[in-house]
Amino acid sequence: MASRSTETIVGAFVLLGLASLAYLAINLGNLSLGAERYVVYAQFESAAGLKPGASVEVAGVEVGRVDEITLAVDRARVTLSLAKSVKLQDDAIASIRTKGIIGDKYVQISLGGSNRIIPPGGLIRETESPIQLEELIRRFVLGKV
């Protein structure tokens, strides 16, 4: 009897440990479980500096993350995974912006006013590529044209 209850307690601890590990893995790895998210795509002329895992914000509120950045012919195709509760109109504009002056790049979405909503797997048509600080400096140094 005694050994039986010891075994049960050990088993319970092992399960607890596994559950904690899983919780850690999901949280640290930024994995998202469940169906509360959907994916949309956006094409940028350049995604310079943007990294997978970067946040997607609407009005400064994080509503999703950058999943993947791939090359589509000559443009960058960015996969965004967004919270289900966020609805993007087809005239929403996705811009790659910088946090602060030299901070990380993130995707900022300004909501539109159209009645048509971008469905899961759809494309954000209106995009703005990041402003290159070096480019601006170059222009400044080489003289205003």
């Binding site: 002329e45 504009i93 811009s95 300004s110 209106e126 703005e128 590529s129 402003i131």
Partner: peptide, 18 residues
């Protein structure tokens, strides 16, 4: 919409109006 050096005129107006 007109994009000047990659920046959208509509987005510029949108953020200002908002």
């Amino acid at each position: 919409d007109v994009m000047i050096e990659g920046l959208s005129l509509v987005n510029n107006f949108r953020s200002q109006f908002n």
